[in-house]
């Protein structure tokens, strides 16, 4: 897989002998594949970085992309693919930047001629392939972590914990609750209890179309955990279907307070905490 010392010596000579021509030709090929989405100057800089990384590595003797002495080269490749992945380029558009080097090398080897020309080209092409694969791998890794980050951001967006009253916080849950989201919501709720020093929490599930056993368990565990911390949870807005599911699944809600609506739950909590709500005044003229 790796290039021998002589081969990499010749590669270094080829690439550094006509450095300007190599980078210009390389940039030219890449530019046509990217259809002007990156400026010529930026591309040239990227290509020059790669070029010098390859030359530096090949001057050290035999090249093995997985070896320690190729760390700089690997970093340059990873850098390129990270940048492209973040800018929204496709995997092909990214790896073509590496494979373009093959065309350049083909031209150079042909010009130089010599007995080793064919062997050299095959060896160089193999190295470029390896570099291409490596770039592809790091491209995919970057994309995966982007997706994971976005999923996390989405999770945060969709789980607000609001303060309803002095000492009362609420989580209005909206949409399908999967296990991961339920867990995040519950952790956030418990943390808010501590941060705001609120002894009451209302979990409103009016906007939740369905619950499964796991989600119901998460809600139950949260209520128990809140109790351990010295706070009380009230669940409000249980839809008829969900009530049926809960009973059918045999989930014990035990002595957990449930109320029909968020308003009922708030009234219940205020009464518990001794807040006097004003009596409704008879409206004049009504």
């Amino acid at each position: 897989m790796a290039l021998s010392t002589e081969e990499s010596g010749r590669l270094a000579a080829l690439l550094s002998g006509q450095a300007d021509r190599v980078t210009s030709r390389w940039t030219e090929i890449v530019t046509s594949s990217l259809r002007g989405r990156l400026s010529q100057a930026e591309l040239r800089r990227q290509v020059q970085d790669l070029h010098s990384a390859i030359v530096a590595t090949s001057e050290q003797g035999d090249i093995d992309l997985s070896a320690d002495n190729a760390a700089e080269l690997r970093a340059a490749l990873a850098d390129l693919s990270r940048g492209r992945a973040r800018q929204g380029f496709s995997a092909t558009e990214t790896t073509v930047s590496i494979f373009a080097l093959k065309d350049v090398l083909a031209e150079l080897v042909q010009e130089a001629g010599g007995a080793n020309a064919l062997n050299d080209y095959v060896a160089f092409a193999k190295l470029v392939d390896e570099m291409g694969l490596f770039t592809f791998e790091s491209f995919v890794r970057t994309r995966e972590s982007l997706i994971a980050d976005q999923a996390e951001q989405l999770l945060e967006l969709s789980t607000p914990v609001v303060k309803l009253w002095e000492g009362v916080v609420a989580v209005p849950l909206v949409g399908t609750l999967d296990s991961a989201r339920a867990q995040v919501v519950m952790e956030r709720l418990l943390q808010t209890l501590v941060d705001t020093s609120s002894p009451y929490a209302i979990i409103d599930i009016t906007g939740v179309p369905a619950v499964d056993t796991q989600v119901a368990q998460h809600i139950l565990k949260t209520v128990v955990a809140a109790r351990l911390m010295g706070a009380d949870c009230i669940i409000s807005g249980i839809r008829p279907q969900i009530a049926q599911t809960i009973v059918a699944l045999g989930i014990e809600f035990g002595d957990i307070a449930t109320k029909a609506s968020l308003a009922d739950a708030l009234r219940h909590v205020l009464r518990l905490s001794g807040v006097e709500t004003a009596r409704r005044q008879p409206r004049r003229g009504a």
């Binding site: 209890l193 609120s198 955990a225």
Partner: peptide, 30 residues
């Protein structure tokens, strides 16, 4: 018992420890 952290409470629930007979509050003041 006051000041139990959320992560601790979640872990205790998972562990199956209910701390029966213990009164709890969020902080010293409460």
């Amino acid at each position: 018992v006051v000041g139990m952290r959320p992560a601790v409470a979640i872990t205790l629930v998972e562990l199956g420890l209910s701390l029966n007979g213990i009164r709890t509050a969020l902080n010293v003041e409460r």
